[in-house]
Design a protein around this nucleic acid. Sequence first.
DNA 1: TCTAAACTAGACCGACCAATCTACTACTAA
DNA 2: TTAGTAGTAGATTGGTCGGTCTAGTTTAGA
Lengths: 192, 192
Amino acid sequence: MSEKKRTSRDKLLDVTFDEVYRYGYCGAATATILKKAGVPRGSMYHHFASKKALVMAMIEERLSPKVRAFFDVEIDEDLSAERMIDVTIKKIAKNSMLIKHGCPLHRLMFEMGALDDEIASACEKEFDYLVGRFEKVLLIGIAQGHIKEGDAKAMAEFFITSSWGILSRTPKSSSKEQFLKDMEFVMMALRA
Amino acid sequence: MSEKKRTSRDKLLDVTFDEVYRYGYCGAATATILKKAGVPRGSMYHHFASKKALVMAMIEERLSPKVRAFFDVEIDEDLSAERMIDVTIKKIAKNSMLIKHGCPLHRLMFEMGALDDEIASACEKEFDYLVGRFEKVLLIGIAQGHIKEGDAKAMAEFFITSSWGILSRTPKSSSKEQFLKDMEFVMMALRA
DNA sequence: TCTAAACTAGACCGACCAATCTACTACTAA
DNA sequence: TTAGTAGTAGATTGGTCGGTCTAGTTTAGA
């Protein structure tokens, strides 16, 4: 497997992530992706059967790792659950793209939810992963007595969906300070 | 001003609301809108200068009233603030379109936030209205002692954005029960 | 060195997009 | 009756969309 092969494919995936994040699935044009990646049409359709296939690969190889890197709680048994979540929140707050344009997974999931089952399912899979991770942390928190007793999975889903909503304001009206203030409310609902 | 004139314009606005709600601004095709409304192209461009102008009118004359009808808190000084909010939550929960496809204002605002300033501003105006209404109710709640002391505007923004996030799951994974459960967490953050 | 597969390259295709155009009809007021 | 306006009607336009096609180039193994 040559370096060039991977390079061309990788460029396509990188640019596709950016374009879909910015303009959505419908708004992202293959012609633009091709131009920005500096890759000819034939190469794209050699590597991917269709625009949809390109986006499905992008979800798995770009969006998923990025989202996990930012939204995932790093579990550290030595820390309190509250501290682990706090670190995650601060990490999100530091990423200005997330603050201004929201979570890319949320964007795609919300747009495609009713339009394409396969893309929606791929997004849901990521959502479920994040929920699972947060659930684990919340269970630790409940055991530690820092988090309210109750359905940890439901709490995790509340945490992620409400965070997504908080992050989904217009770039103009969103800010790091606003986000942190709102997340404080979210935590109030979960703390024991 | 004839009846027919209003009928044609109205049909266009009604169908535009549906199509934009379902497929987004980019995904909504004027050809489809025209076909579903049973209105010829010329009529549409007689009433509206462009697709964007059509959507701007739709926001003001359809989306805004609908969103206010569902998301707005009806202020009733005889009730407790908590009860007023509870009525609003129950009203949202009863609307299956909102539960399955999320808030149409949120959809458009999230899609267009970075793509068109005028549409984004029109949406923000509605957001600000809703925030203002909730703020008023929360201030009543604070006075009554049912709601936590604090920045009522920030609380109102938290309430709306987190509700939007909670409502923005895929149609497959969203349900009335899930929504009510999640809104209970939101209220936990606000109750005194 | 030869061959097959992997990959690049971009011209090209029909479908569809928003928007324009000209012609026509219905209504209204002078 | 007539002139002007509001609205209907849909064919047409230029541009963009995702996707196909054929040809050329590079790479890896026999």
